[in-house]
Structures are given as C-alpha cells and as structure tokens.
C-alpha cells in the first residue's frame, strides 16, 4: 500500500472534553456525500408534488400525476395517481391485449376451439397457469390425481362425465360425492361378501362363492347398491357414483394391496364407513367465465375428454 502523500494533520476534535481528557474526533463526511444527501432532499420535494404525499386535515396532497381508466359505465375517468388506479388501468390494458383471444374463446363452440391450433396454444399456456394456481393442490401438477383423495383427470374414466358441458358443470358448481355408511344396515359377513363381489367386478382376485352371495346382495333391497351404482355397476354420472367394473379405483387403493385379505379390507372400509370426502370446490365467482372455459378445454385435452 502506498503511503499517504499528504502531511498527516493533527486529529481534529469536536472540542468536547469529558473527565478532563476524553476527547471526540471529528471526521466530517466527504463533500460528494453531503451533496448526494441534498439531492435526495430535492428528489423528495419533486416527489411530493407529483405523487400523493402529505396529510392535510382530513385529506392529503394528491399530487399532480393522474391516471385514466374506464369505469363500469364504460366512460373514461381520471383520478389522482394511486396503486389501485394504476392496477385498474393495467388490468384493462392487459385485458385489451388478450381480448382477441378471450373473445374468440368466449364465442366459439368447444369443438371448434379444439381444432384451432393457434387458440389451443393459448389454451395450453393459460390453462396450465390457471390449473397450477388453482387445481394442482388437489389434482396434482399435470392432473394425475391422487388415489384415495383426488381423481385423475388425464384418463378417460369420468365420475361426472367427460364431455365439455359436464366438465364445465363440475368446475362451475363443484361436486360432492356421497355414499352412506352400511356398517349398521349390513352384517360383517354381508359386507365381506359385497367386497368380494366388487373385487370380482374389477377383475381382482376374490372368493367366488362369497362374490356370488355379494352379487345377490348388491341387487337386493337390503343393500341397494344397484340404486346408485346402477344395475350394471358401471356407476351413474348424475350421482357421481363410481364405476365399479373397471380397474380404476379412486377411494380404495386396491391395486397396490398385494393379498386378497387386505384388498377385501380396503373395500370393506368403504362399504362400512361410506364416503363423504369427495369435495370439489365450486369455482363460479372465483374464476371468470372465460377462465372457466379455458380450464374446461384444458382439462378436456389432458387426455380423456369425450
């Protein structure tokens, strides 16, 4: 390090003296720093004039800066600058940019949207963002779902229906699946027989004699499973009752159980305890009509739309 060229000056002190000999050095701030400080004061003065600043009585100085936006009557309105006015205008500008897209989506029937590659590009990117923010917590990123909790939206198996209209209905009004518990209405043996029958429907290993007994029960007035799941056990989409004849399980994770007793136990639990967990929230009011339409098409094309 180079030695300082300047002759070392004697230390400057503030002149304060404590206890007879305790002194305080005085090292003034550099000039550029001081001027920088004056500049910030000047900046504040300009800022006070342009933006809302000082409180005065029951109001405040609103500043000379203004923002113009369109009000609910469609007229232009000007207000002093503030973050809410700025947001309103930004939302309106962005909406104007996206309007060509959303307008086309709002007007076109679903079938045509799907055939328009340009629009579908928009649906895929806007839809993915909407899905990640709102749906992925339950249906998981990509829509794969979670056995035991949330249905898979990427397969062609639909609880409530996979047409555009049904998907839209699901999103708009939400869904609530309900199956009553049978623990009191049926004996343990009856429930086990039904469980074997349900396993047989899904092509899972089971006990044939018990399944035959279960089949009778299924269609009897005692258990009345057929009433909700249908005579063919394929489920009713108006009730959201599961199709029991396929290999897709939502509530009982039967495929991952390795032996028959544990498979039976899983189904027994459902029949005995019923189901009241299937709650899909309603999105009307939370999402706009256009957003719901984009999501409907997005979910439809995840894989299994009908």
């Amino acid at each position: 390090m180079a030695e300082s060229q300047e002759k070392p000056q004697g230390p400057q002190t503030t002149g304060h003296v404590w206890d007879g000999d305790l002194q305080e050095y005085n090292n003034p701030l550099p000039q550029w720093w001081i001027y920088g400080f004056y500049v910030t004061i000047l900046f504040a003065l300009v800022y006070w004039i342009v933006y809302p600043s000082w409180p005065v009585g029951q109001g405040f100085l609103t500043g000379i800066n203004t923002i113009t936006y369109v009000n609910s009557q469609g007229q232009e309105e000007t207000w002093h600058w503030n973050t809410r006015a700025k947001l309103l205008r930004e939302m309106q500008e962005a909406a104007a940019q996206q309007r060509p897209w959303f307008e086309r989506i709002a007007q076109m029937p679903y079938e045509q949207i799907v055939k328009d590659p340009e629009l579908m590009g928009f649906v895929r990117s806007a839809g993915r963002a909407l899905f990640t923010d709102n749906c992925a917590g339950c249906h998981q990123v990509g829509g794969g779902g979670k056995i035991g909790h949330y249905p898979n939206l990427t397969d062609d198996n639909w609880i409530y229906g996979g047409t555009f209209d049904k998907i839209r209905e699901t999103i708009v009004q939400g869904r609530h699946g309900y199956m009553p518990p049978f623990a009191e209405a049926l004996s343990r043996a009856q429930i086990d027989a039904l469980a074997h029958y349900v396993l047989s429907l899904a092509g899972e290993p089971h006990d044939a004699t018990q399944a035959a007994e279960g089949k009778n029960l299924f269609h009897s007035h005692t258990a009345a499973c057929y009433y909700c799941h249908g005579d063919d056990a394929k489920g009713r989409q108006d009730l959201g009752s599961a199709n029991l004849t396929d290999r897709i399980w939502l509530w009982a994770d039967v495929p991952s159980a390795t032996d028959v007793p544990s498979k039976v136990a899983l189904v027994r639990q459902i029949i005995a305890g019923g189901l009241n967990r299937g709650n899909m929230p309603a999105w009307e009011g939370r999402l706009s009509e256009e957003q719901i339409k984009v999501l409907t098409v997005y979910v439809h094309q995840l894989g299994g739309g009908q």
């Binding site: 809302p52 809410r84 006015a85």
Partner: peptide, 9 residues
C-alpha cells in the same frame, strides 16, 4: 364497482 375502491386512496 372497481372504480369506487380507487377513490379510497
């Protein structure tokens, strides 16, 4: 109406 909330700032 969104413009009403603007006026509270």
């Amino acid at each position: 109406k969104p413009e009403e909330l603007v006026k509270f700032r």
